[in-house]
């Protein structure tokens, strides 16, 4: 499969990039391209214009600013893995970046691309020829979902590794459009609609420029657990990020558990935050929390693995992750 015809621009400033984005209708940002190039070959992406962010140096910086780390959207996963402050303060972020794909992708894949990654489905991530065997589904503009036949919407699965971690750290992202620039909590970036799972894929014509993560207090403990069939190359079947702020008596303060692979966007099981609040972690509490968490995920058969199995392993890795954070 060869790449389709398109035009390619490499603006040297953000303004220029945004102008081009605003000017043209069929226009897509390319970061590392590890996902986009495949989508183009499979004709899932048919943009006439690609705008590369390669020549905008400001987007590649990682800096410390006051109480936060600012990561430029074009930082590669390798940059993130090797950045000392991230190693020290955000072990879960480093782990999630390390867990993405295979080593051959991580020196070009970017964090921005990971955040903006499209949702996936076994009926969608296929070639044009493959898809021509059946009716077009919602995600490619059709009127049916092959996975959830009764549902009137697309349930394709969010499968990026890094966003759950960022959300559990309370990260915010900066989106720059032609008329405004806004900073929003990352969880608000995701729409929940499988067809257009995030603000940018919904057509906001914005560029994600940077991620801001507050530097946590020492008593914030975090980790990321990814479950996949092969320990490299594969997307997460389920990934869980846990970040818990402990108080002096080792009771849980704010506890954030974010799951990937379980819905059309990152999923935060709401009950669990409350369940853990002010409690000391113990085996029973953890297993109750994990049980409760999986009642709030609704996996569909968008991969070759059954939702029942997903739910079961979600429970296991959620409790494993909480246990690791709690040192149990």
């Amino acid at each position: 499969m060869r790449l389709p015809e398109f035009e390619y621009f490499e603006p040297e400033s953000l303004e220029e990039a945004i102008n081009q984005l605003a000017k043209n209708n069929s226009c897509t940002i390319i970061a590392g391209g590890t996902d986009l190039v495949v989508a183009l070959k499979q004709r899932l992406q048919n943009s006439r214009y690609l705008i590369s962010l390669d020549k905008i140096p400001s987007l590649k910086k990682i800096t410390k600013k006051d109480d936060a780390v600012i990561i430029g959207a074009m930082s590669t996963l390798d940059d993130i893995i090797n950045y000392t402050l991230i190693k020290e303060k955000f072990p879960a972020l480093r782990k999630a970046a390390w867990d993405v794909g295979s080593p051959l992708l991580r020196s070009i894949a970017t964090i921005g691309g990971n955040i903006c990654l499209n949702t996936r489905c076994r009926f969608y991530n296929q070639s044009l020829f493959w898809r021509s065997s059946r009716e077009e589904c919602f995600k490619v503009g059709g009127n049916i979902c092959h996975v959830a036949k009764k549902k009137n919407s697309c349930v394709s699965t969010f499968s990026a590794d890094i966003p759950p971690v960022l959300i559990s750290y309370g990260a915010r992202v900066k989106l720059v459009g032609a008329n405004e620039e806004r900073v929003i909590p990352l969880e608000n970036f995701y729409s929940g609609d499988g067809r257009f799972p995030n603000v940018i894929l919904s057509g906001s014509k914005e560029i994600l420029t940077e991620i801001e993560i507050p530097i946590p207090q020492n008593n914030l403990k975090s980790c990321y657990h990814k479950y996949r069939m092969r320990e490299s190359i594969d997307f997460p079947l389920i990934g869980v990020s846990v970040a818990i702020q402990f108080n002096e008596e080792k009771r849980c303060g704010d506890a954030r558990i974010i799951i990937t692979g379980a819905g059309t966007g990152p999923v935060e099981p709401a009950q669990v935050r409350g369940m853990l609040l002010n409690k000391k972690l113990n085996a029973n509490l953890i297993s109750d929390a994990a049980e409760a968490a999986v009642t709030e995920i609704y996996p569909f058969k968008t991969t070759l693995i059954s939702p029942r199995y997903k739910r079961e392993v979600a429970k296991i890795i959620i409790s494993e992750a909480i246990r690791e954070v709690g040192g149990i």
């Binding site: 076994r122 296929q126 493959w130 065997s133 059946r134 069939m229 092969r230 320990e231 997307f235 070759l304």
Partner: peptide, 22 residues
């Protein structure tokens, strides 16, 4: 993996052949 004669995993990503870690 076949459903009605259609192969759902025609790639090295979805056809789970062993990698070095296995």
């Amino acid at each position: 993996f076949l459903e009605n004669g259609q192969c759902f995993n025609p790639s090295f990503l979805s056809y789970q052949l062993p990698i070095s870690l296995d």
